[in-house]
Design a protein around this nucleic acid. Structure first.
Length: 191
DNA sequence: AATTAACTCAACCGCGAAACC
DNA sequence: GGGTTTCGCGGTTGAGTTAAT
C-alpha cells in the first residue's frame, strides 16, 4: 500500500536525512515567519517532518550563526571546565560556546574525551590493583576528572593540538602542560 | 586493491517540564 | 486543578567516511 496516496488524516512523516529542498523550505519559512511553535511551523511550511525534526535540523545545521569547523583548543578546555562543573548539561554548556550546538558538544565529548576517560579508568584499575598490593588502599582515585588529570590528559593534550591545527612540536606536547591546561585542571579537581 | 575496523556526526527516540486549554 | 499538547534535553543509533592491515 502506498501511504502517499492515502487520503486519511494521518499525514505521512518523513524520516532520515534532510534533502536540500527541505532545507531551503525550512530556511525560507523561518526567514519569513520566525522560529518556534515547531509543529505548526512544520505543517504550514508543507514539510512532512515532525516539529521536533524541524527544530533539530534548524538548531544543529541550518542556523546562520552556527560556527563550522573543528573545536579549538580554547573551546575544548572550556568544554572540559564546564563539564566538570555541570556534568552532561550540554545545552547549558553550549550557551557558553557561541555558534556551537549542544549536539555538537555532546558528540565531541563522547567521541574524543570520553574515550580517554575510559582509557584512564582502565589504567587506574590496573594501577589500583598494583598499589593495593603495596598497601596504599587509601589513595583511591576519587573522580573521573581526577583520573583524567592524573593518568590521561598528557596524552590527550597532544591530540587536542592536532585537532586545533596548532603547530606545537610533539616533544613539547608529550610531557609539558600549558598554563591553560594547568588552569583548567583546577576546575577539574576543585569541583 | 580489497577488506575490515575505528571514527564521526546527523538524526531519531524517550522522557520530563512547561505551556495551554 | 487536571488533562493534553508541545518543547527541549540527554542518550543512543546507524550511515558514511577514513585509516589501518
Amino acid at each position: 500500500m502506498d501511504k502517499t496516496q492515502s487520503n486519511s488524516q494521518d499525514v505521512e512523516v518523513r524520516k532520515g536525512p534532510w534533502t536540500l529542498e527541505e532545507d531551503l523550505i525550512l530556511t525560507n519559512h523561518i526567514a519569513n515567519h520566525g522560529e518556534g511553535v515547531w509543529n505548526s511551523l512544520a505543517r504550514s511550511a508543507g514539510l512532512k517532518r515532525t516539529g521536533k525534526s524541524c527544530r533539530l535540523r534548524w538548531l544543529n545545521y541550518l542556523r546562520p550563526d552556527l560556527r563550522r569547523g573543528n573545536i579549538t583548543h580554547e573551546e575544548q578546555l572550556l568544554i572540559m571546565e564546564l563539564h566538570a562543573k555541570w556534568g552532561n548539561r550540554w545545552s547549558k554548556i553550549a550557551k557558553h560556546l557561541p555558534g556551537r550546538t549542544d549536539n555538537e558538544i555532546k558528540n565531541y565529548w563522547r567521541t574524543r574525551i570520553q574515550k580517554h576517560i575510559k582509557r584512564a579508568e582502565t589504567f587506574a584499575a590496573l594501577a589500583g590493583s598494583e598499589t593495593n598490593e603495596q598497601g596504599s588502599s587509601g589513595s583511591q582515585v576519587s573522580s573521573t576528572a581526577e583520573l583524567m588529570v592524573t593518568n590521561c590528559l598528557p596524552t590527550f593534550h597532544g591530540e587536542v593540538e592536532a585537532f586545533s591545527g596548532e603547530n606545537i612540536p610533539q616533544e613539547l606536547n608529550e610531557n609539558y602542560w600549558s598554563m591553560e591546561d594547568l588552569w583548567s585542571m583546577q576546575f577539574l579537581n576543585g569541583d
